[in-house]
C-alpha cells in the first residue's frame, strides 16, 4: 500500500477485538475508511455493529488491535480520546438530547465548553446548522417539545457544531415513526454529498444503496464482507450475507 493511500485513510481499524466478560463481541475486525467516504454497516441484531462504531470514539474500549482516527492512535491516553471525540460526531438511535437545555443550548454547549468558542459565535453557527437541517424555528424549544424526526435532526446539528471530520451514526432512524424517517435520511444524504466522512449503521437499504460508497456486512462479531452497493445487492459472495439480504429485502 502506497504512502499516499494511507494518508488518505481517516479511520483505520486493524484486528480490533472486544470482549464483554467471556463473550467476544468483536473478532479481528479490520476496516479502512477514506476521507469523504460513506460506509454503511449492516448485519443482524447482536452482530456487533453498535459495538464496532462505539469503539471508534471510545464509548466502548477495545482490548486488542489498533484504531487510528485521523492519525491519532486510540490509546488509554485521555488527551487522545478527547481529541478523537471532538473530531468524530456521533448520532444515537435514541437521540440523547439534553432535556433540560433548549435546542440552541444543546447545540452550543460543546463548542462553548470544549472549543472555547464565544457564545454569540456559537449561537450564530448553531442557527446556521438549524437552517441546514430545516428547523430554525425550533431553536428556543426544549427537546421534549419536538417530534422524533426533529429531535434527531437537532442531534445531527449538535454533532456538526463541533465541526467533526467524521460522523458516526448508530441506527439514526430506528426509533422514528415511518413518516419521519425520510426527513432524517434527507439530512444525512445532504451531509454525505457535502463530503462528510460517514460511518452509518442502518437497516435502511434504500439509503445504503443510494448513498453508500461501500457496505460492510457484520455477523457474530465478524466483518464478513465489504463491497460496493452494486456488488452487495447483485453479487454477494458469502452465504451468510445472502441469507441476511434475502431476509431483509
Amino acid at each position: 500500500m502506497s504512502e499516499n493511500e494511507t494518508a488518505d485513510e481517516i479511520i483505520i481499524c486493524q484486528d480490533v477485538c472486544k470482549w464483554f466478560g467471556d463473550f467476544q463481541a468483536l473478532k479481528d475486525c479490520s476496516l479502512r475508511v477514506k476521507a469523504q467516504e460513506v460506509v454503511v454497516i449492516i448485519g443482524p441484531s447482536g452482530s456487533g455493529k453498535s459495538t464496532f462504531i462505539r469503539c471508534i470514539n471510545r464509548l466502548e474500549e477495545h482490548q486488542a488491535g489498533d484504531i487510528i482516527v485521523d492519525g491519532i492512535p486510540l490509546t488509554r491516553d485521555v488527551r487522545n480520546i478527547e481529541q478523537i471525540r471532538s473530531e468524530a460526531g456521533m448520532v444515537f438511535q435514541q437521540f440523547n438530547l439534553f432535556p433540560h437545555l433548549t435546542v440552541l443550548e444543546n447545540i452550543t454547549l460543546a463548542p462553548i465548553q470544549v472549543r472555547k468558542m464565544k457564545k454569540e459565535e456559537a449561537q450564530e453557527t448553531a442557527m446556521g446548522l438549524l437552517n441546514r437541517v430545516g428547523i430554525p424555528e425550533q431553536a428556543d424549544k426544549h427537546p421534549g417539545q419536538l417530534s422524533g424526526g426533529q429531535q434527531q435532526r437537532v442531534a445531527i446539528a449538535r454533532s456538526l457544531a463541533m465541526s467533526p471530520k467524521i460522523m458516526l451514526f448508530d441506527e439514526p432512524t430506528s426509533a422514528l415513526d415511518p413518516e419521519m424517517i425520510k426527513e432524517v435520511l434527507d439530512v444525512m444524504q445532504e451531509l454525505a454529498e457535502s463530503g462528510m466522512t460517514m460511518l452509518v449503521v442502518t437497516h435502511e437499504m434504500g439509503f445504503a444503496r443510494e448513498v453508500a460508497d461501500r457496505i460492510v456486512f457484520m455477523d457474530a462479531g465478524e466483518i464478513v464482507e465489504v463491497g460496493t452497493p452494486e456488488h452487495f445487492f447483485t453479487n454477494a459472495q458469502h452465504d451468510r450475507t445472502k441469507l441476511f439480504l434475502s431476509q431483509i429485502l
Binding site: 471510545r58 464509548l59 478527547e82 471525540r85 471532538s86 454533532s159 463541533m162
Partner: peptide, 15 residues
Amino acid sequence: GQYEAAQALGLSAYQ
C-alpha cells in the same frame, strides 16, 4: 445515553 452523548461531544468528565 446522557453520559454517552456528552462524552461523544468531547466534554470532559467535569464538564
